[in-house]
Amino acid sequence: MAYDSFSVLKSSAVPMPIENVDTDQIIPARFLKATERKGFGDNLFRDWRYDKNDQPKQDFVLNNPTYSGKILVGGKNFGSGSSREHAAWAIYDYGFRCVVSSFFADIFRGNAINVGILPVQVSPEFLHEIFTAIEKDPKTELVVDLPAQTITISATGASESFAINGYKKHNLLNGFDDIDYLQAMKSEIADFASKR
């Protein structure tokens, strides 16, 4: 499934300073019954966002008009638990293109990149600076520069670099995915398989 290429993203951000946000919270299991990749954004953080009568919970950040943007900033160990890629689809479909945290669960990190979301891992200190900056001014912008591998808080100019391997970076910059790559090396794979 192709996705939009990613280069430099300048946007305000939505803060969610909760640790261990697991993929069951991002998209609860009862919304995994679709057989197409459509409409998952509506149920992003469903049980934190709506009460049992489907009314928006006013104290949840996605229901607070003060905060908006294409960047989601989460606490440590974001995306733990279930391997459901639906979690990444829901985040993408809602309109986020980048998730920032001080630590990501492995499977979620991989799924995010595979669907075109950039996971940016920063130090705990820098994460704290981001939360503070947003608290001061909810409209403050973050600049996520994939070519330079940096993230900057516009208001303060504070910046930090982040890691991503060269292969995945190239893919994201161009909107390529792994399946394109693998299709191009099928005879090498067939050779390998025949020797096993």
Partner: peptide
């Protein structure tokens, strides 16, 4: 465990 994009990779290329 893997995500659905990876399920597609394994189906199409066993890798």
């Amino acid at each position: 465990g893997i995500g659905t994009s990876e399920v597609e990779m394994v189906l199409s290329s066993q890798c």
